[in-house]
């Protein structure tokens, strides 16, 4: 599997820069995740110029230079890629996490191997029963063991 490059086109003016980010390529959660990290340095504003597009505007809080703004754009682009990667890792491992979390906090005894787990998950999806993980501090929230 080869690595791809992603091009980010941005507009630069005196104190701000803006990107259009395509939701077909980046999850909204990834865009939020990257934007959140910049609220200490920049005023961040999101807008929707078109369907499935998010315009991210970063306005520097301090007086800045074009070079510093470009560096900020580079940082944001990197954070967006990292954020997207994290979202994908999170989503693709969500079922595993639910399993080990429920075992860790509620001691549910279920099958141990990945193959058995995936088979179980498939069966559950077919039965259209979404997994529910009780929040750890809630009393009496689904602590019953289920011997799957």
């Amino acid at each position: 599997m080869s690595e791809e490059t992603a091009d980010f086109t941005f507009e630069l003016s005196e104190r701000e820069l803006s990107f259009d980010v395509d939701e077909e390529l980046y999850a909204l959660d990834a865009i939020y995740g990257a934007a959140y990290l910049f609220v200490d340095r920049a005023y961040v504003f999101l807008a929707r110029p078109a369907e499935r597009k998010v315009r991210v505007r970063l306005r520097s809080k301090e007086a800045t230079t074009p070079e510093a703004l470009e560096a900020l754009a580079g940082e944001f682009a990197n954070e967006l890629l990292n954020s997207q990667l994290r979202v994908r890792i999170g989503r693709s491992t969500a079922a595993l996490r639910e399993q080990y979390m429920s075992r860790a906090f509620f001691g549910q005894q279920q099958s141990s191997t990945i193959a058995e787990l995936l088979a179980e998950l498939d069966a559950e999806e077919m039965a259209e029963e979404p997994l529910e993980v009780p929040v750890p501090w809630a009393k009496g929230s689904g602590a019953e063991a289920s011997d799957g």
Partner: peptide, 9 residues
Amino acid sequence: QTRTLSVVR
């Protein structure tokens, strides 16, 4: 101004 940068995905 419009600029483009490339990053590795």
